[in-house]
Design a protein around this nucleic acid. Structure first.
Length: 274
DNA sequence: ACTGGCTCCTGAGGGC
DNA sequence: TGCCCTCAGGAGCCAG
């Protein structure tokens, strides 16, 4: 799945191509997504309006219209957004298409259909939806003191804690492993056992890893493709994810793969002892 | 109150 | 070549 960096790369790629364009028409494949598809709301609040800007909140892409309605798109595990000439044939798993006023069409393709499309007609509606979502990793409020306090007496592993969207927005399974490797923290360490100093290391690692991933255009894993169809190139820099049995690039120990809350977790048993 | 497990769905890749 | 199994970047819901 696209995590925060991939969504941000899509946002940056798409912005110059669709900002200012008017959305003329919405079409839907008829297949359900994770949330009910708001075809009627698209017709009522989106069609006939211009795209003002593209924003992002966690892993949600927010297409803000000139009437203050917002088209919110989540890519789930396998979602992609692309721009195509409206004459290009629709392909398998193109579930929503928005025809623009310049002959192009914005298409949401999602084979697994874990993604979602929503329309928020008012600011209140949008805020209500995001009320439980944690801070953005690059916001000032995301800091060691916040994490230390939020961890409180929780026993859950720090890796699962970081992947909880109520704690911080946008960190998924790949970057959780990469971040903890960068911070020299064992992913299984209980959140309550981390000192402020170690949370500080984690905050720095979060920003370093996400920043670097965005700069590299996201991670090339399986099927991620950005809005211009280019694969990312961060994969060559992944230090632990997908490297089970291979040598740690810092110490040479073999990278371990374990399961945590059902998700594959990678770490160096030597560099991340606690 | 917390926590991990299960679930939705399709496709890719490995073993035989 | 084909069949069957496992696994995959998310996140809401539910039971213990």
């Amino acid at each position: 799945m696209p995590e925060l960096p991939e969504v941000e790369v899509v946002r940056r790629g798409l912005t110059p191509q669709i900002a200012g364009r008017k959305i003329l028409q919405t079409t839907w494949s008829g297949k359900p997504l994770r949330l009910p598809v708001p075809l009627f709301a698209c017709q009522q609040a989106i069609e006939g309006h211009k795209i003002r800007e593209i924003d992002r909140r966690g892993k949600y892409l927010l297409i803000r219209m000139d009437n203050s309605a917002v088209l919110a798109i989540h890519l789930g595990m396998s979602g992609r957004l692309g721009l195509f000439p409206e004459t290009a044939p629709v392909t398998r798993h193109d579930h929503l298409c928005w025809r623009l006023d310049n002959g192009m069409e914005l298409r949401f393709n999602d084979s697994r259909r874990f993604g979602s499309v929503q329309v928020f007609e008012t600011r209140t509606e949008e805020e209500a939806f995001f009320i439980l979502l944690g801070p953005e990793p690059f916001e000032k409020s995301f800091c060691a003191a916040y994490l230390f306090q939020n961890a409180g007496n929780r026993r859950r592993p720090v890796k699962n804690f970081l992947m909880d969207g109520r704690v911080v927005a946008g960190i998924g399974n790949i970057y959780a492993s990469e971040i903890l490797y960068a911070a020299h923290v064992n992913p299984a360490t209980a959140a309550r056992n981390l000192s402020r100093g170690r949370w500080e290391k984690i905050v720095q690692a979060v920003r370093l890893i996400l920043d670097r991933a965005i700069a590299c255009g996201g991670t090339t894993v399986a099927d991620f493709v950005d809005s211009s169809g280019n694969a990312g190139n961060f994969q060559i820099q992944l230090q632990v994810y997908g490297r089970a049995g291979e040598p740690c690039r810092r110490c040479g120990a073999r990278i371990i793969k374990s399961l945590m809350a059902g998700r594959s977790t990678y770490y160096c048993p030597q560099c991340q002892q606690r």
